[in-house]
């Protein structure tokens, strides 16, 4: 079966972003960009399904400016077979992304779309669920284990109270959580090979999708700062401060 894996180019998870002085956003000029960590897990899961013989083709998709090609090359170096860039300079919000992906699903007919559960830049946690709704497909979100068998998918999900297991009919949407797998490192030979793999570019207009943002960002600010407090010398001083100064224990 064919799998579609959308991947997003985001500020690297080790970078602490700075809010721009004019309050219009965060400063991402000259900042290291990487594949969204949850999407790496999605690519890895697709690879493991292929290595298990369940999946025959992995198509990576990214949406955004030309620079997203780098993210797609990373997915190809991890092992995806080919890539599609939906190229646009417009700020993309989850609903617009889901609509573009729906159009690509109609073209590619995958049985499975595996996405990261959330991007670490906008922290929306929406795209997979929205795509599932637009397609009328079942979803297994926040997956920590995926098994494909007998024309269906069995997904163990991380929920607030623990874990739950769902059985989904295929085609289906899966979104990844942290414990699903540990993504492989890309090797130099695979990076070289990835350069020769096909990467197609389409525009949202080609897909018949209006990507105009629905939410307007009015301003972006620093969060309230926490000041570092005092060091205490020992446990007795700590207990005394918690009792008499902070008054949070009795």
């Amino acid at each position: 079966m064919k799998v579609l894996v959308p991947v997003k180019r985001v500020v690297d998870y080790n970078v602490k972003v700075r809010v721009k002085a004019d309050g219009t956003g965060v400063d991402i000029a000259n900042v290291k960009m990487s594949m969204n960590p949850f999407d790496e897990i999605a690519v890895e899961e697709a690879m493991r399904l292929r290595e298990a013989g369940t999946v025959t083709e992995i198509v990576a998709v990214s949406l955004g400016p030309t620079a997203c090609q780098e993210t797609l090359r990373t997915a190809l170096a991890m092992g995806a077979d080919r890539a599609i860039l939906v190229e646009t300079g417009v700020e993309l919000q989850p609903l617009a992304v889901a609509k573009c992906l729906k159009a690509l699903v109609a073209r590619e007919s995958p049985q499975l779309v595996i996405l990261g559960k959330q991007a670490i830049d906008d922290d929306s946690n929406q795209t997979g669920q929205m795509l599932a709704a637009l397609l009328g497909w079942p979803q297994g979100t926040f997956a920590s284990k995926v098994k494909i068998a007998g024309g269906g998918a069995e997904v163990i999900r991380e929920i607030d109270g623990g874990l739950e297991t769902l059985s989904l009919q295929l085609p289906a949407i899966i979104t990844t959580d942290l414990r699903l797998n540990e993504p492989r490192y890309v090797t130099l030979p695979n990076i070289m090979k990835a350069k020769k793999k096909p990467l197609d570019t389409v525009k949202p207009e080609d897909l018949g999708v209006d990507v105009t943002p629905r939410l307007a960002t009015l301003k972006v600010e620093e969060p309230p700062k926490r000041k570092a407090g005092a060091r205490v010398a020992d446990v007795n001083e700590l207990v005394q401060k918690l009792r008499n100064e902070a008054k949070v224990i009795s």
Binding site: L215, A216, V220
Partner: peptide, 13 residues
């Protein structure tokens, strides 16, 4: 957004 390192004020249309 960004793990709480920035706070965005957004308006829905």
């Amino acid at each position: 957004i960004y793990a709480g390192n920035a706070m965005a004020t957004v308006q829905s249309k």
